[in-house]
Amino acid sequence: MLNPQGNLKIVLAGEGGQGVQTVAEIMAEAAFRSGYQALYIPSFGVEQRGGVSLAFVQVGRQPIGAPVFYTADLVGAFSLRAVKKIGGYLGDETWLFYDAHLEEEVKELYPSLERRVAIPALEVAREEMHPRVFNVVILGALGEATGLLPREAVTEALERQLGHKFAQDPSLREMNYRALERGQELCRLALAGEGAAGGQGEVRRGPGGERGPEKADRGRGGLVPGSLEPIITEDGQGRFYLYPALCKGCGLCIEKCPVRTIGWARQLGALGTPVVEPGHGEPCIACRQCQLVCPDCAIWIERRDGDKP
């Protein structure tokens, strides 16, 4: 579908930690291995994680002169702040890919943009696999959208980038490959539904997709009253209060829990990564180790018998 003059220019934007840099690097690697000229350069603020993170990728037959450009052929934006930030890279011919939960915001911000495609990557990753493979779904979709990258090259680049993690846990390989395939499918579906590119990118819901996006999914828009609502789970002797607006999904509490009751949840937190929940091991003994080591004060434990520790 994408057949611009010269090289293909791609901008990817998301929250730091969402994985857009990894996606960009894999795309550039796959292009390079397929015999194209390819260049990738990241751009983010002083915070290594937690800000909006931009990635510039160029792929094509022409030698690449400069790493940064002003108008992109393909833009991917995967959080609210990212959608707001990429406005300057949009031209009349630009395709905008975004996660389906951002539909309203994209319509509102760029009403005249014709070529926009919603990919329900977050929902598919969360419902079918694990929220963490969100970026690999995106990778599949964007790789497909370029029309340049052979799937084997993308798979090979994915292996080079994440192989060391797969070696530690082989089940991850299967999940990531599946995420890649689902992304490719979602892209084909979305583009088929696009027809004459009427801008109504309405192929949104994958199978089983009735749930609307939760508030915390919408990126970090500052703490408004109400977004500090905890998720309260009772488990064993404890009542587990988890504040998704604060939880960054570091997992320190999971490893510190002596009864290993804490595990990953499907709900996403402050940085678009999964939060934690109890109920994955022995019942909670309300020792408060998790509360103690949480660097973000996102956990609070109340004893169900009401006793102070």
Binding site: R220, K248, T273, P295
Partner: peptide
């Protein structure tokens, strides 16, 4: 809050 430190950073 949430503060600017990375996930899992000990500063918090």
């Amino acid at each position: 809050k949430p503060h600017k430190f990375c996930p899992g950073c000990g500063h918090g």
